[in-house]
Write a protein that binds this DNA or RNA. Structure first.
Lengths: 158, 158
DNA sequence: GCGATACAATTGACTACGCAAGCAATAGTA
DNA sequence: TACTATTGCTTGCGTAGTCAATTGTATCGC
């Protein structure tokens, strides 16, 4: 029984495997550090970062979900945790009463800033040990094409 | 209270964000298809693929864990499922009785082959819609550097 | 050969999600 | 105006994975 076909590697398959392995390895390393140092998961951090950058430090849950590539229920649960810690609060929307905004509190901003210091340093250490700046830009450009369903994360020039 | 620091984007940070978003989006798409068509998760598939390619279609659990970037307990649970379906079996190791091999069964190989057809097609469709072959090789090369801790099953002196 | 240490694997308890169902509120249509 | 989607959000339940503790086996120093 020949397994020949199982050994073929289209470039797409090669890239796919390296993508899932590489991301797992990177997330495992970076997340462990972030949890150990600040008690935040990667998504906690990214969520607060999106809020910090948003107009009035608030966003609709649906928009958070889209940006973070999570489902609506995933966002509800993620925010549950951040609300309990007091880093995020709720606010009603005057023009659409279905909407509940998630708002980054002052405490949340402080926490985010504090966590940013070591987290960004960790990230840079991890990536800059493996790539030049030029390669990082190349990598970012290539990876950016994967989210052609989900929109741009660079919002607002403020 | 200025958020200035929160807007800085070192290339490493940019690449990091695109990595986690991009992988989420890609996995969500590909995995949904694989589950719908064959009742397999991406890790189920990758695990069986590793076994199919291994010497005698068998591997130590510890080595599977390393390759798949999962913990030992994650592997135990993943294999639990595959064993129940009859796609993977257990085998004792004569020289080290701590070890239990995971062995791909004939049924497992059949299942894997069958799933490969559409899965590889899905993968290629997803990636080749976004990249040229040259870009895929570039991407694979770059992503490969992320696992400089985990890869290569050299181990055993035998 | 014997004790300390390391390693392979499993288990229980927990977390972080996803999915499907459901409830309000809004928007589109007549 | 009423009627039917559609949208935003939450909840119950299920799944995939982690961590810490445990068991059994190997290996190393002596």
């Amino acid at each position: 029984m020949s397994s020949q076909v199982l050994r073929e590697q289209a470039p797409a398959v090669e890239a796919w495997i390296k993508l899932i392995r590489g991301q797992s390895a990177a997330v495992k390393a970076v997340n462990a550090q972030l949890v150990a140092d600040h008690g935040l998961t990667v998504n906690d951090f990214e969520c607060m970062l999106l809020l910090a950058r948003a107009e009035e430090r608030q966003m609709r849950r649906v928009d958070l979900a889209e940006q973070l590539i999570l489902t609506a229920s995933g966002i509800t649960r993620l925010l549950d945790g951040l609300e309990q810690e007091g880093w995020v609060d709720r606010a009603a929307c005057a023009s659409d009463r279905r909407v509940t905004y998630a708002v980054l509190t002052d405490d949340g901003l402080v926490k985010l800033r504090e966590a940013s210091k070591s987290h960004v340093a960790d990230l840079r250490a991890f990536f800059e040990a493996r790539y030049t700046n030029e390669e990082l830009e190349q990598l970012a450009e290539l990876l950016g094409r994967l989210t052609t369903d989900a929109p741009e994360l660079d919002c607002s020039v403020d």
